[in-house]
Design a protein around this nucleic acid. Structure first.
Length: 744
DNA sequence: CGCAAAGCTTATCTG
DNA sequence: AAGCTTTGCG
């Protein structure tokens, strides 16, 4: 077990170990299994090994995420657990849709039984290796459901599992669960993979769940060459079923465990690292370690409060602009990291306004777009006609006269006979549909059959192209000349291109032949994420959640939205365990920064279209004052003593806020410098700022009258220095503040 | 069956 | 505020 602090070179250790095994101990690449947290990490690791060994052997390594590696094996062994070789992998949307269908079939109210909640419960159960039967016999789980007034979840779970099986589909959790079952139920599989994987390496071990734990235990039992790398301080995936116990208990789980600690950080400045250490010290129950660095001390951490979430966005965009000009940073040196995806909007807007290129991670991935899902649904259904979710998408798209009534009837029949909807369709004459409907249904069946007959003769690309043409789907999108319609058409073309590229990419040179069937293609795209599709090296500012930023590093980091109820999030402040995980999340965001770190928070922000007020995050109290620079933004105020406790009563803000005040940045503790009050003149209207020149006399809504003495900044962010009559010299950012040019 | 309007929900994190 | 679902009508 390698306990590796943030920035201590975890991934390098894993890569080096693989190389060492192969080069110095002549271990065959086919006997090494390396499990990573993301597809991207897997790809990078493979490339690094290949670059150093240069023998082409790297491609024979089993490197990937738990999900992708197990999916690959399951496809091979599917028949042994009763699944079709080309089983479909359901993403969360598909899975929730099945849950919803089951809820409706059981005549339960989907207002009470929200598919989202039910699905999450099922998912947690699966991650803990609890099947439907055990679920219904588990007293604690039953009590929880009864208390939440959802006693039928066990029943839904049971039906859900049966429905997925009938559809020939596995959800994400099944990829772990079914693999586990395979090992448990089929002895020859267990021994085959135990023998094959003589060396097992696992990255980010602190974020593994019980299902993953048991699988590793089984696979590793024969050789006990299990090497895990992790950092308990960065365990942030408990919502996905991860248990920090896996890493805390590792020493008890295996004989002869050797623990290696990596405590030197090569990433961050001393200031950043010390702040991180101070914060994480507040957690109990950790593996003891002291992170240090030989890097320079660096700058203090800038703590900035703004009035609103939009101001926060503007502040960050301005700061990026300023840093770029002053210190020649590139766009890609910056990351804006936040707790929830919904926070991205304000940053997007301000970056766009300033003309700073950016990339958002964690939105919907390419493969989740409607038009892509529609096209993919045809391909899925061709490969696996039991896939009811795919059928529901395509049976009447493009429109072919098979409406809701007909579809409902088909679904009902398949439930009654407990067979797939496809089986009903194959004998559709027996079920008394009207003549017109019958023709439409039979035409549909004929079409799908013609696609299926191509599966063996054609490659994935030719088939996909044919499907797009034959169904009229491509034509339908082509005819839509709206901006969105053209975009959708381009997306379909892009999909076809990517299938082509995939089809033509080279095979494995020895050993296994890479499977180039459509089925194999479909399987891997379901497991791709947003992050896998985007180019990390592009010169853009990166926006993502802290979870998504795990394992990454940036020269300059903005940790945004440090507010109570947002971070720590309201959903995670009810138990010590939850709160400690939020703190680890804070630790993660701090340690993403190499050189400069900003921490920002807003007094008010919009939620569901409503303005809410937030207090500063309790985590801010945990940073010693000496590491902080609070005087940083906007108004020049001297920092004052920091009261060790933020008031629990909300400190009311000034009664009426003028526009300029609302848009100004504030130093956190002492709010704003006192200004001499000014009442805007009657009918105050801001002038066109492009006409502003040095020497103009202007009126500001709050600061009053003054004279422009300097113009600077860029075209995107012009700044005027104004000498006010009663309020001294101020720098006014013309994008935000509004000035009236006074006729003289 | 298709469309438009109204109504309702959402937003903690993800392979 | 925005996206998705339901409802109502032609």
């Amino acid at each position: 077990m390698i306990v590796a602090g943030a920035g201590s070179g975890k991934t390098k250790v894993l890569t080096t170990r693989i190389i060492h095994l192969m080069a110095a101990h002549q271990v065959d690449a086919f006997n090494i299994l390396a499990l990573t947290f993301t597809n991207k990490a897997a790809r990078e690791m493979k490339e690094r090994v290949e670059r150093i060994l240069g023998s082409g052997e790297a491609r024979n390594l089993y490197i990937g995420t738990f999900h992708s590696v197990f999916a690959r094996i399951l496809r091979f062994e599917a028949d042994k657990i009763g699944y079709p070789k080309h089983f479909t992998i359901y993403d969360t949307d598909d899975a929730k849709s099945v849950v919803k269908a089951v809820i409706n079939d059981l005549n339960l109210d989907d207002k009470h039984y929200k598919p989202n909640i039910v699905y999450n419960r099922i998912s947690s159960a699966k991650n803990a290796l609890i099947g439907p039967e055990e679920y219904r016999n588990d007293y604690a789980l039953q009590q929880e459901d009864i208390r939440a007034n959802r006693p039928a979840i066990g029943q839904i779970y049971d039906q859900y599992v049966k429905r997925c099986f009938r559809n020939g589909a596995m959800d994400f959790d099944d990829l772990l669960l079914k693999f586990y079952e395979l090992l448990r139920q089929v002895p020859e599989c267990l021994s085959r993979y135990q023998q094959k994987f003589r060396y097992i390496l696992i990255d980010e071990y602190q974020d593994t769940n019980p299902a993953q734990y048991e699988i590793i235990k089984l696979l590793g039992a024969m050789h006990e060459n299990v090497c895990v790398v992790g950092d308990d301080a960065q365990s942030i995936y408990s919502f996905r079923g991860a248990t920090i116990q896996n890493i805390l208990q590792f020493q008890k789980d295996y004989d002869n465990v050797k623990v290696v600690k990596l405590e030197q950080n090569y990433r961050s400045t001393q200031s950043i690292l010390e702040v991180a250490n101070e914060v994480i010290r507040n957690n109990k129950g950790q593996i003891e370690k002291v992170l240090f660095t030989e890097n320079p001390e660096g700058e203090k951490i800038r703590l900035v409060r703004t009035m609103t979430d939009n101001d926060e966005g503007k502040f960050v965009a301005d700061s990026i602009q300023e840093q770029k000009l002053r210190h020649h940073f590139a766009n890609k040196d910056f990351a804006i990291l936040y707790r929830t995806n919904a926070q991205s909007r304000a940053f997007e807007e301000s970056l766009r306004r300033m003309g700073i290129p950016y990339t958002i991670y964690g939105g919907i991935s390419f493969y989740q777009r409607k038009e892509i899902k529609d096209m993919v649904a045809y391909l899925r259904f061709t490969v696996n006609p039991r896939d009811e979710e795919a059928l529901k998408r395509i049976i009447n798209y493009p429109v072919r006269g098979i409406g809701k009534t007909t579809l409902d009837k088909l679904l009902l029949l398949s439930n009654e006979k407990d067979c797939s909807t496809w089986d009903i369709l194959l004998n559709v004459r027996e079920h008394g549909f009207r003549a017109g409907t019958l023709t439409a249904l039979e035409d549909f069946v004929t079409m799908i059959r013609s696609f299926a007959s191509m599966l063996e003769k054609s490659n994935a690309y030719d088939l996909a192209f044919h499907v797009g043409k034959q169904t009229g789907l491509v034509k339908e999108l082509f005819n839509d000349k709206s901006t969105e319609g053209m975009q959708r058409y381009e997306n379909i073309q892009e999909l076809l291109n990517s299938i082509k590229e995939w089809t033509e990419s080279p095979d494995n040179d020895e050993g296994e032949l890479v499977d180039k069937s459509l089925g194999a293609y479909l399987q891997q795209i379901t497991l791709l994420t947003d992050a896998d599709e985007k180019d990390v090296d592009a010169d853009t500012v990166k926006l993502m959640t802290i979870h998504a930023a795990k394992g990454l590093e940036f020269s300059c980091v903005f940790a945004a939205g440090l507010e109570e109820l947002l971070f720590p999030n309201a959903m995670a402040i009810n138990t010590r365990e939850e709160l400690e995980e939020e703190r680890r999340l804070f630790y993660v965001v701090i340690t993403r920064a190499k050189q400069k770190l900003w921490i920002t928070y807003a007094n008010t922000r919009y939620r569901f279209g409503q303005l809410v007020q937030n207090e500063p995050s309790r985590f801010l109290d945990e940073i010693p004052e000496s590491y902080l620079d609070r005087s940083f933004a906007g108004t020049k105020t001297t920092p004052t003593r920091h009261s060790s406790k933020w008031s629990t009563n909300y400190e009311p803000r000034p009664q009426q806020r003028t526009t300029s005040e609302k848009l100004s940045y504030m130093a956190p503790k002492p709010p704003v410098a006192r200004v001499v009050e000014h009442k805007p003149s009657e009918g105050f209207t801001p002038s066109d700022m492009t006409e502003l020149e040095v020497g103009h006399r202007v009126e500001h809504q709050k600061f009053g009258y003054g004279e422009v003495i300097k113009l600077e900044g860029s075209a995107h962010n012009p700044v005027a220095t104004v000498q006010f009559e009663h309020n001294g010299e101020k720098k006014i950012m013309l994008n935000y503040a509004r000035l009236r040019i006074v006729k003289s």
